[in-house]
Design a binder for these strands. Structure first.
Lengths: 165, 165
DNA sequence: AGCCACTTGATGCATCTGCATCAATCTTGA
DNA sequence: TCAAGATTGATGCAGATGCATCAAGTGGCT
């Protein structure tokens, strides 16, 4: 039997879209105003900095961040241009390469992390009790295709603000 | 006193970003595969079609859709190019104009509406009970800056799938 | 070894976005 | 009535994104 389209679901959909866009906007604007680059850069620096040697294959980065391949490639371009990372040769697989975070990159990652945490607190934390936030997580997780997800658990660890999108 | 950055909030933030992006992607891909234009077009057609004479000032459309002015202007360009709407003169205010939905526009709106409803049911409705969806709405609303929002209540009315973003 | 299919990463191109700015018009207030 | 300021909508430009495709390299199979 078919479910009839639920009004509740539609309402949830709308809010999910609207609220996410507002919150994201708020956070990104805060960071931008503080002179920081886009969030995607932070996510990338985060993945790099927490990987064993501060280096990852683009293909790994891509999987962690859930963004398309060409997008990763260009993101790396920008990080490299800004001296936040470098491309290094990959001996085991001459097709590939390693992207390694530089000290400058680590520094920026740290500074952004602080600003990011503040922004999240302002736009999310301050509006929900911990219990509500947890409930929200539970509900959202159910929409998350069950499936997937950052193989290396991306559950934000304490001070580690964590990757978005 | 300062709140210390909550881990729950950070977790909620991540999920909000990740899940939204996945769900949106799912829905948009479904529509695209079915040969439909982007969701923004639907939202615009929706606003037009439910306004008194099927026409709106760009500035109104912009407020309803919560997108920047230049974005509205270009969205209208595309709708007009495709014959889904026309620009009409506005006698009361010669700076402005009216955008009016065409029959073709209404037709597309209707067809997209059906596909859209199916997609939402698939990506949201089928994963949540009505009660959970309602709970989710409640929690998300709390993040929604309280403030704002579609002046003309955008609460999706029954069959009316409603605007996103 | 030699061939074929797949993976990896980059890139050309069209489109889309954000930002700043513009011209035209309206409104206010002296 | 007229100038100053605000509002409306369009647009040039730089940068970002999506898509398709490419070259280089790998690995498996015969």
């Amino acid at each position: 039997m078919k479910r009839k389209p639920s009004t509740e679901a539609a309402a949830a959909w709308i809010r999910l879209m609207r609220v996410q866009s507002r919150v994201l906007d708020g956070v990104e604007q805060d960071l931008k105003r503080a002179g920081f680059p886009p969030l995607a850069w932070y996510d990338a620096l985060m993945e790099l900095s927490r990987s064993p040697n501060g280096e990852l294959r683009p293909v790994e980065l891509e999987k962690q961040m859930l963004i398309p391949q060409y997008s990763t490639s260009r993101l790396i371009d920008r990080l490299v241009d800004e001296g936040l990372a470098i491309r290094r040769e990959c001996k085991m697989d001459k097709r590939g390469l390693f992207v390694e975070i530089t000290p400058t990159g680590r520094e920026l990652h740290k500074k952004m992390g602080n600003a990011y945490a503040v922004a999240i607190e302002k736009h999310v934390g301050s509006k929900l009790t911990d219990a509500d936030a947890a409930k929200l997580c539970g509900l959202l997780d159910r929409l998350g295709c069950a499936c997937h997800d950052t193989p290396a658990v991306s559950a934000p660890v304490a001070k580690d603000v964590a990757p978005a999108r």
